[in-house]
Structures are given as C-alpha cells and as structure tokens.
Design a protein around this nucleic acid. Structure first.
Lengths: 196, 196, 196, 196
DNA sequence: GATGAATGAGTATTCATTCAT
DNA sequence: GATGAATGAATACTCATTCAT
C-alpha cells in the first residue's frame, strides 16, 4: 500500500492548483493531472472536492501551526517568544508560496465548514499571541493598557497582510529579515518619535 | 432616473447575497429574488455575474475610499489624519456588515480581474497610510526608521483583521471606540513599557 | 405558460424511451431529444430522473386505473363488471404499447419508491377484482370457496402476463376479443370438462 | 474443484444482492463482499456484471426448470401433472426468496440478452403448461374451447403474481398449500357457481 | 424596459473493469 | 489463482445567459 505517499502527492498538487486558480475554479481533473493520477484515484483518498480543501487546511496548515507553537513553548521570555513567532510565521509564508496563497484566499471562504475550521484550529494559533502579550504584561515588559484580545488580531492581521505580498508579487519585495525587523519595531516601539 | 435606482438595488442585493453565500455559491436568481426583479433584468444592468462582483468592489468600496480620502485631505496634522483614517475605516466596516464581508472574502479571490482591481484602486487606498507616515516622518513626528512601505501593510492588515470580527461574529465584541483607541495606541506607542 | 403541454410531451417521450431502453439505460438526453427540448428543460418540470419515472407511473397509469374503475362503478352485475374489467384492461394495454412496456418492466423495480407506489395505488386497482368477486359470492354467482385475496392476484397476474405478449412481440398474436373471451371462460368456467 | 465452489458462491451472492438492490443498483463490490472475495476475483469466473445476471438466470433458474420438468415427465395423467407443476413451482418460489425476487424483477428487463434468454429457456418452461392442457384436451379431461396458447400464459401469470407476494411481503401470507389448492380450483373449475 | 422559460455547456462523482503484485 | 489499487469513461444535474413575448 503506497497510500500515504499518494495521499500527500494529491494534497501537494491540490495546494498548487488551489493557489493558482482558487478552490472554485480548480477542477478535479487539474489536481489529478498535477498529481499524475487518474481522476478517480483522488476519490480513493478523499471524499469529495471540498474534503481536499479541508484536508489542505487541516493537515498542511496544521503542521505549520504545530511547529511554530513548539518552537515558542521552549522560550519563557516574551520578547524572544514574539520574535520567534514573527520570524517563523513570515519564514514559513515566504517559503511555501502555494500554501501561503491558499491560506490567504481559501481560509476566508464563507463556507460553513471552512469557518468551522477557522474557528477551531486557527483561533488557537492567534491566541498564542495574546498569551505572549499577557505574560509580558505580567512581567511588566508590555504595557498594561494594551488589550491582548484586540492586539492579537492586529498583530496577526499585520503579519498576514505583510506576507501576502510575497504570495502575490512576482518581482522583488522586502526581504524576510527586513520585514521581521520592521514588524517587531512597529509593534514594540510604535511609530511615535520618542520625545526627549 | 428609474434605471439608476434599479442598478443600485441590484448592487445592494448582490452585496447582501455575496456576503451571505460568497461569490461562487451565490446564484443570479438569488440576487434577482433579493432585488425583486426577474433574472433576465439583471443582464440589462450588468454584463455577467462577475461584472456584478467587480461593480460591487468598484462602486461600493470606491465610495468608501473616496469618502475617507476626502475627510483626510482636509487635515495636515499626521496624527489627526491617522486618527481619522482609523476611525472612518472601522466605523464604515462596523456599519455595513455585508460590504465588510464582501471585502474580507471576495477581495482575496485569485481571479485575475479581482487582482487587477486590488492592484489599482485598493493600493491607492493603502498608500494613503504610507503618505501619512511619510509626512509624519518629514515633520519629525514619526520615527525615521519605520519603512512606510511595510508599515502601511501592517497597518491595513491590522485594521482589516480587527474589523473582520464584526462581520463574522454574532455576539458582542469590542466597541468601535475601544478598538480605534487600541489600534492607535498600539501603532503609535508600541507595546513596550517605557522605561524611566 | 405552455407548461402543461411541455410537461406531457416530456412524459410521453420518457414513456417511450423507458419502454425501449428501460429506466436505467435511458439517458436524460435521450428523453430530451425525443421531446425536442434541451436537457435542462426537463428539470423545469421534474426534480430528477427518478421523478420522471414515478410521474409516468402516477399520472399515466393513474389515468388508466381511474378510467377502468369508473366504467365498472356503473355496473352492479358482477359478471358484467368482471367482463368490463378484462376488456378495458386488455384494450388499454394493447393500445398503448409503450406504457404497457413500462408497467410490465419498471413497476417491478426493487426501488423503494416504486414499491411504495405499487403498494399504494396499484393494490387499490387489484382490489377492484376482489371486491367484484366478493359481491358475486354474496349474490351466489361465484363459488364461496374461492378466496378473493388469492383469486384477485391470480386474475391480475393472468391479465398482466397475457398482455405482455403484445408489448414484446412484433408479429401477429391473439386478438383482443379472443383473449378477452378466453380469459373470462377460463376463470369463470375453469378448464375441466363438465361431466354430465 | 475449488473453482466450481467459488463460482457457485459468487452466483449465490449475486442472487442475494440482485434480489435486494436490483441489478442496476447492485455493485460488483457488493457481490464481492457478500461472497467474501476480492472484486477482481469475480472476473476470473465471469466476463462482466451482466454475465453474472445471465448466469443466475441460466444456471439457477435452469436448475429449477429442469427439476420441475423432470418430475412432471414421470406422470401421464394431465390432472396430476398440473397439480405437480403448481405445487413445485410455488414451493420453489416460496423456498428461495432471493431467486424468486430476481425472477420477478430482472427477468422483465428490456435488455436484449435478457429478452433472448426469456424467449429461449423460459418459453420452454411455459410450454410445459400448454402441453399438459393439450394432452388433457385429447383425453377429454379439459375443455376443447380452451386455447392452450392463451391459457398457458394466464396460468403462468397467475402463479407468478401469486408467488410475488411471498418475495415482497414480510408478514404472514397465504400458505403454500392453501395457495396451491386455490389456484387449481380456480383454473380447473372456474369461479362460477354450478347451477343445478 | 421587463420577464422567466428555455437553453446547453460544463463537471464532480461513480463504478465496472484491469493488471501489477 | 487471488488481490484491491488504479483507471477513466460515462452521465445526471446545475445555473449563467439568452431571447421571444
């Protein structure tokens, strides 16, 4: 049974096709061709077209979320945790353009199942940010008047939008290091010039 | 003119339907029913289904962008400009749930025409932010090491994500005033506790 | 709205196609072509392929059953009633070959819905026979040891099988009059030579 | 031979599945699962799905026909022959529900090959009846005005319909003995009360 | 202008059949 | 012989779009 190998091959192919055409414009035959299998073979591994999308979200994004969460758990210093979070998130998005595109586009779908997924696994990811902020506030590193519930969304939104440029642009853009540094500078110190 | 009235009625209905079902799951007959016209009537005002979406983006979002830009142009103080931008943006998104939903979801579409629109009108909107930052930097209000090209995206991303909560949530969330204040505090002063 | 006309046209065409190919081998496009409408048009009048079959059974057979029942209700003499029943049944079956074929073939389907129909409307038809027999027994016309519940089935089965020949055969067969006479003779007098 | 055993196992399983779901709704995998073999194994014993159906008709029904024909051949008295025919036919149908169901349903198929089979083997079976009647007429046991060509069909149709009840019903029905007796009484003596 | 019945291109999915192991 | 993963042809059904009224 070479099942797992083919399962992953289809998932990668689907990610590629979804990234290029979007879920609704993607054809099962496109994915099959990309994965070099017959159309029917796809249905040996997935229940239907939508199941493929959900699997991409669950499995592929799931892996990323897990990785990032793990690398943060080792740290205790909020500053370091936040830095790692930004670095890892942006690095992953820059690395895997197809997956980044799918996250940017398909995760927004108004479909009930997609929303369900978003509300389950994804919020968990965003909450990592608020936990870091809370810990930082307890340690008097972060300002107490910052509300973690709002800040976590602002922070994630910023990362998400910033990384979208990589997925959609073709030419050269800001580098990973530069972007990481700027985001951290922005959120940690703000834009205001410190008055003497 | 009766025509314009119907044109707008269809556009509003389409926005509502797109918000609820998403573009691909929306049926022309859904929009027709919502607008209380016959299916065929829609084709007297729009070329095709996609044209309706583009029109929603162009006209409805266009109006908003124009309004916000106008109210900012009157100001010269970067701090006030930024404050107005945040207030207006969030207020509009909270006011018009349907449109907010369409912006959140459909503006991400991988479709070529949608991307084209985004690259044209939308970037113009985002650039309002970078212009404000640049002006602030010239006036020594904002830090010079902040790169407006990255900051504008981070800023917009934050606003976008923060406002998404209103579109998708059913229960009570953070208020408009609270959110506006927090976003400004975050981006202007950063999260770091100012050491004495 | 020329709805009813087209509805019937599709129903007749479907009956013809079902008769020729059987339900499962019939293609929607076959029916559409036969009815000279587009494939999609069929779905304006029927929910799905199966609904067409059920409609043929319900509407077309329904009409026949109704007709036969009416012409019997006018009579009170069991002998005349039975004669009319046999005549009408066989005449109808000989007249409309396509419908006869569909009744013979598709009414046997193991499908749940078909069974449901059979159990509802069809039994009602068969029970006409047992009622006639009962009345005849009360009037001392028919033998009391005949059980109407079995006899009604034997009677119907005989008619059904006898009429199948017309639907399936291409050459000449027994005439309507001949067959009617024989069936009546058989069931009324039996095959046994009356001993003096 | 192990092969023959498996051949029969598949045939029995197919009969069961066909009886339950009907030929078109039956899946090869259903039959394979029922027979506890792999899907591919079936194709070592049969050419295709349709071949299985034909084989069920040919082999399974063939055996029954042969048995009944044999038990009749021993007799010379038309009355006894007819009695045996009815007894055996009904007994077999009541005994083997699955096969009875397949005969009732699938033998009606409009498929060319099925029709061919019916026209070949099956008519031979029905003709047993007409031969008995003819013999009875020669011996002055049966009335001369009965046309064996029509009567054989009426007779078979009656048996067929009467036995269908057993295949489809779940509750209690008329017993085998009762039904046999009634059918014979009906066809031999008719329904008419003998006037003194 | 407005209607909505009619159109027919387009596609996800099924499942009989094959064949490498 | 036996397996069951892989194949890909086949088709019911949908829905954007048209056009006669």
């Amino acid at each position: 049974m070479k099942s797992l190998e083919k399962h992953n091959k289809i998932l990668t192919s689907a990610t590629k096709v979804f990234a290029k055409k979007g879920f609704f414009n993607a054809r099962i035959s496109d994915i099959a061709k990309e994965a070099k299998v017959a159309d029917g073979t796809i249905y040996l591994y997935f229940n239907n077209k939508f199941d493929i999308l959900i699997s991409v979200l669950e499995e592929e994004i799931g892996k990323i979320i897990e990785q990032i969460q793990k690398s943060i758990e080792k740290e205790t210093d909020p500053q370091k945790m936040l830095t790692i979070f930004v670095q890892k998130h942006l690095a992953t998005m820059k690395q895997n353009r197809n997956l980044a595109e799918v996250i940017h586009i398909e995760l927004r779908q108004s479909d009930k199942l997609v929303k369900e997924y978003r509300n389950k696994t994804f919020k968990q990811y965003i909450n990592v940010i608020s936990h870091i902020i809370q810990r930082g506030q307890e340690q008097n590193v972060y300002r107490k008047d910052i509300k973690p519930g709002i800040a976590k969304r602002a922070f994630f939104g910023a990362l998400d939008e910033v990384s979208r440029v990589w997925a959609e642009s073709t030419g050269s853009t800001y580098s990973l290091e530069e972007t990481t540094e700027q985001i951290l500078a922005l959120f940690l110190n703000g834009m205001l010039e410190k008055k003497a």
